[in-house]
Each structure stands twice: as C-alpha cells, then as structure tokens.
Design a binder for these strands. Structure first.
Lengths: 131, 131
DNA sequence: TAATAAAATAGTAATGATTCCTGATTTTCA
DNA sequence: TGAAAATCAGGAATCATTACTATTTTATTA
C-alpha cells in the first residue's frame, strides 16, 4: 500500500495546479498528453482518484454528470454557469453554521454540507460584440 | 408537443407520491413493474425526466452517481447517509440569503443554490442490537 | 363512431463517464 | 543488483442514462 513516486502522477498534479478553473478527467488527459503522449486515460482517472483520496486535490460534483478536480483543497464554494458549464471559485465566507441549522430537527449526525451556486457567468452575461 | 395521458406516467407519479424517501429510476422501475410487468426502463426514465421538466416532481443529485426523484417539489433540503446511502428530507428554514453572500464579489448573475448535507443517519448511528 | 395525426410505449442498441483487468514497466530499498 | 510492490498502458467491462424504431394509445375531428 505504500505510495510510490510516479512521473504521471506528478504531471497530473502539476497540470491541475496551473489551472484556476476545474478541469474534468478528460481535460486533464488531453492536456497532460501533450507532454506525455503515452499516458492512458485509466492512469489519469486512477491518479485523480488517488490524489483526491489522500487529500492533495479535491473532487467537485456540480450535477453535470462529470467530475471536476481542483488543486485547491481549502474549503471554498463554486459557481456553475448554466450557459457554458464553466465552474469557477466564489469569494465568500464559510457557511458551516448551516450544519447546526440542519441538525436541529434531525436524529442522525451531520458531518458536513455541499453547496454550489448556479446562474449565468460574467462572460455569458455579456451580449455578443459588447466591448 | 401537447401532453397526452399515459397510464405508465400516472403509475410512476403515483408511486413516487407514496414514498417519503427519494427513489432512483431503477427503484421506481422495479416497483412499478409489480403492477405493470411490461413497463420498460426507458419509459420510466422518459417519464421521470418529463415530470421533472414540467415541475411535477424534482430531480435530486447528491453526488452518488445516481439521480433520485421526489414528488415533493416544494423547496427543502436533503441529507445523505454516507453509510447506507439513504436520502431523507430535513426540516429547516430556507437558506436563499446565502445567494446574496455568494453574489457580492461575483460579476455573473446567480440564480440559485444547491445544498445538501451528509453524515450518519439515525438508523446507521444505532449500534447493532440496541433497542 | 371511424379515421387520423400526434404522442407514448416496449424493447433494444448506443453513449459516455468511469472502473476494472492483465501483462509489462518502474520504483524502492535491502 | 535483485526482487517485491506499486504503477502503467491499453483495452474490456460496467453502469446509469439516452436514443432509436416499429407498434400501440390517446385525442381530435369529420
């Protein structure tokens, strides 16, 4: 079970760290392939899952049927554009206090929450040809 | 495009209304099949999507890779058990004010939010054999 | 009520994201 | 260096969901 170094894993992590958006496995694959044309899609998936499991990256699910990945593991919220599908970070305070609200009338143990916002992003909002 | 009556659609909606939990398409399928053994899985998916599109039911995505459906379309929040995977309703106030927080430092237009909570449900929390 | 157009169905094939499998290659460390 | 363990490439398999098509239902209208 001991983790061993892998060139591929390093490339995947490095690529993810260069991106402010939150690429999908397939986007990671096509990009990393430009440096290493032999890397396989399975390797990308396996390493993204591994990195997420050990907490070096985080997996983002925003209901579009595809997992996104983020090299920034600090807690923060995301916005999904319903027009272009882009996923971007939001600058806002943490909302952990809502867990208390949720637990008030509940007999289980709430460990955390998942929140994301949706709407039209700044780019899609601008009409065509507006400078 | 006019909607026509369909026995299958009625059965699906009726079944969903009897459930407090939030069944997946496959659960709907196996249950409705007890009344109508000829119904096809495609018909279940098509009608669930149609009913969700016209707002008669709602589609719930809680990151487990499977869509859940809910006959209660009023806005409310869900809890997902990380142990047994069950999805249940939470009794708590609406959190729409967080959309304002999210929009404060953002140049797009935020239309809404998706929030769900996770942890251990009341059933899974109880040790075996405890009465 | 019969004819007819539109919508819906059953059954099956196709899709797309992701995971699994296998034999070959790397990494690690004694 | 040598060998065990981890990782890889490539491809097959899985699983939820959607698409396709010939047939059946529903609704409308003569």
């Amino acid at each position: 079970m001991a983790l061993k170094y892998s060139k591929q894993r390093e490339m995947i992590k490095d690529f993810l760290m260069t991106r402010k958006d939150h690429p999908t496995a397939d986007v990671v694959y096509t990009n990393v392939r430009q440096q290493n044309p032999n890397i396989s899609l399975g390797t990308v998936y396996r390493n993204l899952t591994l990195l997420a499991d050990i907490g070096e990256i985080s997996r983002i699910r925003v209901g579009d049927g595809v997992d996104h990945f983020d090299a920034d593991t600090s807690p923060h919220y995301h916005f999904v554009c319903t027009e272009c599908g882009s996923v971007v970070d939001l600058q806002m305070k943490n909302l952990d206090e809502i867990v208390t609200l949720a637990g008030a009338n509940f007999d289980g143990k709430i460990a955390g929450h998942v929140t994301y916002f949706y709407g039209i992003c700044g780019n899609c909002r601008k009409p065509e040809g507006t400078s």
